[in-house]
Design a protein around this nucleic acid. Structure first.
Lengths: 201, 201
DNA sequence: CCAAAACGTTAACAAAAGATAAGAAAAACA
DNA sequence: TGTTTTTCTTATCTTTTGTTAACGTTTTGG
């Protein structure tokens, strides 16, 4: 999609959290960049500081790290979702994971320096500060739910729940990635699926 | 400790995130309450909306939920740490977990209504908004690490790491709570401990 | 101070998951 | 199109975990 439409998507995303008039948008927009991330290209890499936060306006990305030579997938971001190696981005320390495009993707990014400028800005700082807070709070809740799932549910229960909620994940993502996401091996997920098939059949 | 000292603790906690002068503190302090939570008493309960966020100035609390009649412990908060059923607090929906005092505790609390007032305040709103953002970001990072641990590490690795970092948890908390926290049963943790003993001995 | 409850370990068995390898089907791509 | 890679399943074997129960110890609370 053309860059202006992409930027518009970013504005809409902000406006789901805080209202924003045209003047405010005029102040924010110059800090944004629109970029293309080709399939298999990395948005973040281990050992490097993640200098951008982004909004996926088209496509999807996968978060993973390499352990004992194996890729272990921890998360995904789809259209209209933010992406960043948050810990690295926020702490300014080298990250541990890759963020890689699953498909050719288009991303609206905001650099660390830019976001700090925006937070400190006279005119829009207050509003953006609130936006940042609400974003962080929402992701906090997502993580809280996910940790709860690990603590209180079996892998089978986690998978069943994932099917119920019918996330986009299921349609667009290879199952061995989902297995990692659920905290089990691909082989194990395959067995879980068979067990569930038998029950529901 | 006396209420004024407790409030002072809260101020110090805020100041680890944002600077705060006396006038700002004067504006914030009236929104705070100091309360005592006796051992085994609940700060939050399932089915109820969590209306307060708090800072533990003395004591410790445990987060747990009841599944199939069993208590499953997911988290703890100690001195100088925040506590809240964040999801319930932020979304204004009934929560799912208990937050219960492990010891007689003293807590400085801020109600949902109060914190919104503070965020909207002319004088200190901007600063508190940033405080709220930084808090949420920090907790986000904690959760990110924890989810990563579940996805990439075995229970044994998680326990070993917990010992290395030598968290307060280990000293003050019964091991079957720690087992839940790590995502395994108490019996399993006992076996893990024995395995590790043999190796390091 | 005593009885009851909570706690940690261990054992025995069942269930589930990890590791590895093999094979078929589907997708990627050249 | 045909070939290679990826993906998913299945099987086998080993390891780990869950479950239940028992036992001694410690802690708690009246």
């Amino acid at each position: 999609m053309d860059p202006l439409t992409a930027l518009q998507k970013f504005r809409e995303h902000v406006e789901t959290y805080v209202p924003m008039n045209d003047m405010e948008w005029q102040a924010l927009a110059p800090h944004l960049e629109v970029s293309i991330l080709k399939k298999k290209k990395n948005f973040a890499e281990p050992g490097k500081i993640c200098n951008h936060i982004g909004l996926v306006v088209k496509g999807a990305v996968r978060y993973f790290l390499v352990k004992d030579g194996e890729e272990i997938t921890g998360y995904f971001s789809f259209e209209n979702e933010l992406l960043s190696s948050y810990k690295s981005f926020l702490t300014r320390q080298p990250g541990e994971n890759y963020i890689q495009a699953l498909e050719d993707s288009q991303i609206v990014t905001l650099s660390y320096r830019a976001i700090q400028q925006v937070y400190d800005d006279e005119f829009i700082g207050r509003k953006m500060e609130r936006f940042g807070r609400l974003i962080a709070e929402q992701y906090l809740i997502c993580y809280e739910d996910r940790v709860n799932a690990f603590v209180t549910q079996t892998p089978e229960e986690r998978y069943s729940k994932l099917i119920e909620t019918g996330g986009e994940v299921l349609q667009r993502i290879p199952q061995h990635y989902i297995a990692n996401f659920l905290g089990v091996t691909p082989v194990s997920l395959s067995r879980i699926r068979r067990r569930i098939m038998k029950i529901s059949a």
